[in-house]
């Protein structure tokens, strides 16, 4: 009898651990994720815009938590006339930028949209109102799905540090538009 009770107690302990860890994982994911589903968008931000500038660059991390590849087909925002994905490159001392039509996020992979590399081009703001704290965004998937999220508008003095050694990373799996 004592043995049975001990086993039940052990199993309850295991169940309790699983429950606690499960809640912690869900809490930690919801703390960073701004979307649900197989593609998680987090750490999405855009620098505060200089005055009268018609183009801004936005940044984010995307993580594919599924076992299948996911294709990002584009983005849109009610705050900008157009949103594109662009890749900055420095090759042979020449700085260029090219539009990227789609980005493939492999199973379990993370892709960083970061300064000096792959980034979002926010073109032509529809309003000159500078009081907003966030920019609404929709990420469109090639399979017809979509993800709503927001870019935090970050003041110049509070920007994440830029690691120059990682800038211009050519290694992401991106499909360049023709």
């Amino acid at each position: 009898m004592c043995e049975i009770m001990r086993r039940i107690n052990n199993n309850l302990g295991l169940l309790w651990s699983v429950l606690v860890w499960g809640v912690m994982v869900v809490m930690s994911v919801s703390a960073v994720a701004e979307s649900e589903g197989p593609l998680v968008v987090h750490s999405a931000w855009v620098p505060q815009a200089p005055p009268n500038i018609g183009v801004m660059a936005g940044y984010m991390s995307v993580v594919n938590v599924s076992s299948d590849p996911i294709v990002i087909a584009g983005l849109s925002s009610s705050a900008y006339e157009e949103v594109q994905m662009h890749q900055s490159l420095v090759e042979d001392g020449i700085s260029t930028m090219a539009e990227v039509k789609s980005v493939v996020v492999g199973p379990g992979a993370r892709i960083e949209f970061s300064p000096g590399g792959l980034h979002l081009m926010l073109i032509a703001p529809v309003s000159t109102d500078s009081s907003a704290d966030t920019v609404p965004m929709t990420l469109h998937l090639a399979d017809g799905g979509w993800i709503h999220f927001t870019l935090d508008i970050v003041a110049k003095t509070a920007r994440p540090e830029v690691d120059v050694s990682d800038a211009h990373d050519h290694s992401m799996h991106a499909h360049h538009g023709s």
Partner: peptide, 14 residues
Amino acid sequence: FTSCPDVCPVTLAN
């Protein structure tokens, strides 16, 4: 150029 939202601000900061 001022319509350069990514590389130019990064370079200025660096």
